[in-house]
């Protein structure tokens, strides 16, 4: 009984944390644009939080630079379980055009496990919101608890 209630609550109240791991800032602007009143993601319970302790979903952008690798790991570890990771943009998904560059580690999934990828360079704000909603739908259907 409580399992169903908790799952419902988890799907209804995803608080996100935005992190730039070496992006060109294009995707970050689009993420902020997805949070404006026009799309109003608070309809789905999404709130932007400043601290990893409050967050459920880590929204990352950009190829992971060698400098950022340890910090990304640390922020991920600071989030309480259960946690999900959404990658926004081409560079975060695979490394993009920075693949193989001397200062770049690769995509986000080379450092931490990723639940959803949102492709695009940069993706539109509505695509970002849609990706988040699809992640919630997959949790609801019974993916990772």
């Amino acid at each position: 009984m409580f399992k169903g209630l908790v799952k419902w609550a988890r799907v209804k109240s995803p608080w996100i944390l935005h992190m730039n791991c070496g992006s060109c800032n294009g995707c970050d602007i689009e993420i902020l644009a997805a949070l404006i009143p026009r799309l109003d993601v608070e309809r789905f319970g999404v709130l932007l939080k400043g601290t990893p302790r409050h967050a459920d979903v880590l929204v990352c952008t950009g190829p992971v630079t060698k400098q950022m690798k340890e910090r990304l790991k640390r922020v991920y570890d600071q989030m309480p379980e259960p946690k999900f990771v959404v990658v926004v943009g081409q560079c975060g998904s695979s490394g993009g055009i920075y693949q193989g560059a001397y200062g770049v580690e690769g995509g986000i999934d080379t450092v931490i496990p990723v639940n959803a990828y949102i492709p695009g360079c940069p993706p539109r704000p509505d695509a970002i919101a849609d990706g988040l909603i699809k992640l919630l739908a997959s949790i609801d259907k019974g993916g990772k608890p």
């Binding site: 609550a9 988890r10 209804k12 309809r43 319970g45 302790r53 600071q78 379980e81 259960p82």
Partner: peptide
């Protein structure tokens, strides 16, 4: 007042249940 739709009725309850079921660091 910001011309948004706003959260659904049970939103605060969902937040509370979710937080109560989360890992406590």
């Amino acid at each position: 007042m910001q011309r948004r739709v706003g959260p659904p009725f049970l939103q605060p309850f969902a937040d509370l249940v979710k937080l109560a079921a989360k890992e406590d660091v």
